[in-house]
Design a protein around this nucleic acid. Structure first.
Length: 416
RNA sequence: GCCGCGGUAGUAUAGCCCGGCCUAGUAUGCGGGCCUGUCGAGCCCGUGACCCGGGUUCAAAUCCCGGCCGCGGCGCCA
């Protein structure tokens, strides 16, 4: 290595001028290397002088092993090419010496993304994404894509973003739900990793108008099978991140929770009982609020758990009810107090789907594109959907899903 | 949308409670100077800010009212 000819390219991370020696710290995706310019190198000293932080450069030179250099080696340059001179002062300190508010950071997002912590977060997310795909492939799933422009706002619930579609009413898809079910009716095991949109008022660190949803749907399975797949996928993601992204986890001073399979299943009724014993009343059939979940996670002393068998009335029409008529074959996957994924056995009988649509005040005719195929051999099936950024919170220790989103879209942010 | 907290140089903060001693302090950045090895280099000099509008007062960064913006909690949310 010592004496090797190299060309490095990157960003000016820092400059130190000690008079006789000038030190240029150049950062690329893998780290920071020191370039040393001595007094005699007049032309390079001149270039050094006019370089500003975050300018892009290529440095041609030789490697020199030197214990005085950070990391034990440095580059003695023969030439420095300036690709782009950055304006000063920077609107955000990339080196991390001076912190920035989260609002400033998203306004200056590209500079923010050059920070160590930001790069670590996206590296971890990418490692997780690959692990998720590989685990699903290994279980016989194929990756599919469903339409993101959809016809009807007929499902109720979350609000949709309208789009102008050749003079017709159309919307951005809030979920691939119905289409992934249909695809499971052809391919058995499908998954999709794609954006979804919700025009909600939600103003929290866990909601975005545009988010990446990891969706799985599998034929000839019920919610138990879906949970088994989910916990394997999440465990694989955690394992890969711990093994592959050690440097990044160190940058973030974070260790993801250990997952021991099978992950604990707590029924909705048990959750209510546990909360009641702690003096927290929840009416039967109610969804659990964030404060309730915070309390519950403290009480059951598990980082990660499933809440299963939710009241049917708290779940959408395609969810399979239990025979008791009160509960359903459904689950939420929870990390601390945050719902990361949810899923269920789906109804595969057309008459029951029609009945459930009507009970919810929805018009079955609007669902013909979906219901029609239940006349032609729809298999029993189950699946789940997971918020990728929410999983990312668990993997990185970040406090806001925006941290896991390069350019987050929320109620107020439409740029950058 | 509700509740709480906040808005001071490019960035991040101190000052506000208890108005005058603020000609607004500090860090970082930026400009200049010194220094042959720094490692968040150091030292010296300089640069740059009180969100907007109204009010109270002899006097407002500081107190009051309204607005705008932000953060957190909640709500909403297949």
């Amino acid at each position: 290595m010592n004496g090797a000819d190299v060309i490095i390219a990157g960003w000016v991370h820092a400059k130190r001028d000690l008079g006789g020696k000038k030190f240029l710290l150049v950062r690329d995706k893998d780290g920071i290397i020191q370039v040393v310019i001595s007094k005699e190198q007049k032309e390079l000293a001149e270039i050094f002088h006019k370089l500003t932080l975050e300018s892009t450069v290529s440095v041609v030179g030789k490697v020199r092993v030197d214990s005085r250099a950070p990391g034990g080696c440095e580059i003695v340059p023969t030439n420095i090419v300036v690709h782009s001179l950055a304006k000063t002062p920077l609107p955000l300190d990339v080196s991390g010496k001076v912190p920035a508010d989260i609002d400033t950071r998203f306004r200056e997002r590209i500079l923010d993304l050059r920070r160590d912590e930001s790069r670590a977060i996206f590296k971890i997310l990418s490692v997780a994404l690959r692990a998720i795909r590989e685990e699903l492939y290994s279980m016989g799933f194929i990756e599919v894509f469903t339409p993101k422009i959809v016809a009807a706002a007929t499902e109720g619930g979350a609000s949709l973003f309208p789009v102008a579609y050749f003079g017709r009413e159309a919307y951005l898809a809030q979920s691939p739900q119905l289409y992934k079910e249909l695809l499971a009716g052809a391919f058995e095991r499908v998954f999709e990793i794609a954006p979804a949109w919700r025009a909600e008022e939600s103003d929290t660190p866990y909601h975005l108008s545009e988010f990446i949803s990891v969706d799985v749907e599998m034929a000839f399975a019920n919610y138990e099978g879906a949970m088994n797949v989910l916990e394997r996928v999440v465990a694989r993601a955690v394992k890969e991140v711990k093994e592959v992204a050690t440097k990044e986890l160190r940058v973030l001073s974070y260790e993801p929770p250990e997952l021991k399979l099978p992950i604990k299943r707590v029924t909705y009724m048990d959750a209510l009982r546990i909360l009641a014993e702690a003096g927290e009343k929840v009416d039967l059939g109610e969804d659990l609020s964030t404060p309730h979940l915070r309390k519950l996670s403290d009480l059951i002393e598990e980082d990660v758990y499933f809440i299963v068998d939710w009241p049917d009335k708290a779940r959408p029409f395609y969810t399979m009810p239990k025979n008791d008529g009160v509960f359903s074959e459904s689950f939420d996957f929870v990390w601390n107090y945050l719902e990361i994924a949810s899923g269920s056995t789906r109804v595969h009988k057309k008459d029951l789907l029609v009945k459930r649509l009507e009970e919810r005040g929805l018009n079955p005719e609007n669902f013909d594109f979906f219901l029609k195929w239940f006349d032609y051999g729809m298999p029993p099936h189950a699946g789940w959907g997971m918020g990728l950024a929410r999983l990312g919170l668990m993997l990185t220790g970040a406090k806001n899903v925006r941290e896991l989103t390069a350019f987050p879209r929320d109620k107020r942010r439409l740029v950058p």
